[in-house]
Design a protein around this nucleic acid. Structure first.
Lengths: 138, 138
DNA sequence: CATTAAATGCACTTCCGTTGCATTCTTTAT
DNA sequence: ATAAAGAATGCAACGGAAGTGCATTTAATG
C-alpha cells in the first residue's frame, strides 16, 4: 500500500484508482486546483465523479476549499497539521491577475481584527490579488 | 434638482427615474445589496435594467462591488471620499452567517501584508464571516 | 421638431455548481 | 467462493446567477 493509499484510508476515504490519481495530480501541483483543471487532466473521467471526489476530500479534511474571488471554486491539499476545518489555519491566498493561478501562502496567517461590539467572528477569508513571483520575473 | 440627481450628474450618470429610485433604495439600506434584492423591491422593472444600473454605478464610482464569499455579487454606496477604484479604501466586509447580510466595516482597513519576494499586491479582499451585532443581540 | 445618443425591455446564452437515479464496483458476511 | 449490502461511478438533467445582442423607447441636443 502506497503512502497515498494510507493517507486516504487514514482519513476514511476509500482509495479507489480515480481518487489516487486525483490526489497525485493535486500533490504535484503547487497551485490551487479548480474542477475544470482536473477535467482537463482526466478527460476520460466523468465531471461528476471528479466533483464528488473533491467534495469527499474536502469533507474528510485532506483538502481545503479556496474562494479566490474569481467565482471559481478551487482546492488545495492541506499541509501537515492544517486545521482549516477548525478555522485555525486561516492563511491567506494570492491570486495572480496575470496567469490566473492561486496559491496558498501558508506562512502568512490572517491578522487578528478587532471587530465592533456585538460582532462575532467565525471565519475569515483574505485574498490578495496581484502579480505572482513567476509573472513578475522574481 | 435633488441631491441625488446632482450626485448622479456629478458622476456622469444620467439621472433617470429608475436610477434615482435604485439610488434611494441603496441609500436607505445600511447593508450591501444584491441584484436579487433590487429585483424583489422593484418587481415591475426588468432584471437587465437593474443589472446594468448597478454596473453603471460601479463604473462611475458611486458604488463598490463586494464579494462576500457567498457567490452572489453585492454592492454598496461609496461613502464620502471612498477611493475604492484606486485600491485606497480597502475596508473589510462582514458577512453574517445567520441573517445572510453583508456590511461594510469602513473604519476597519485591511492591514498591510508583507508578501514573499516577487509578489506584487494590487488589490485585497478580506471578508469576516460570523454573527452580526443584530443577530448576536448586541 | 428632427436627429442622435443613451436607457430600457425582451429573449437568450453561458458557466459553474449541484442533484437524482441507474449501474458498476468493492467490501463483508455467510 | 458467493451472495448481499454499501459505496463509488456514469449519465442526464436542473438551477441560479452573470452576461450579451438587438429592437424599442426615452431623453437630450441643435
Amino acid at each position: 500500500m502506497t503512502e497515498i493509499e494510507k493517507k486516504l484510508e487514514n482519513n476514511g476515504i476509500r482509495p479507489t484508482a480515480m481518487r489516487i490519481l486525483i490526489y497525485k495530480f493535486m500533490a504535484q501541483k503547487e497551485v490551487a486546483i479548480a474542477l475544470t483543471d482536473i477535467e482537463d487532466a482526466f478527460v476520460k473521467a466523468e465531471r461528476t465523479t471528479l466533483y464528488r471526489t473533491l467534495k469527499t476530500f474536502e469533507d474528510k479534511g485532506i483538502v481545503h476549499h479556496i474562494d479566490d474571488g474569481t467565482g471559481i471554486s478551487k482546492y488545495a491539499l492541506c499541509e501537515q497539521g492544517c486545521n482549516c476545518e477548525l478555522d485555525q489555519d486561516l492563511h491567506l491566498h494570492f491570486h495572480c491577475s496575470n496567469c490566473d493561478k492561486t496559491v496558498c501562502l501558508t506562512d502568512h496567517k490572517i491578522p487578528h481584527i478587532n471587530l465592533p461590539d456585538g460582532y462575532i467572528a467565525e471565519d475569515a477569508n483574505l485574498v490578495i490579488t496581484g502579480i505572482c513571483e513567476k509573472c513578475s520575473g522574481h
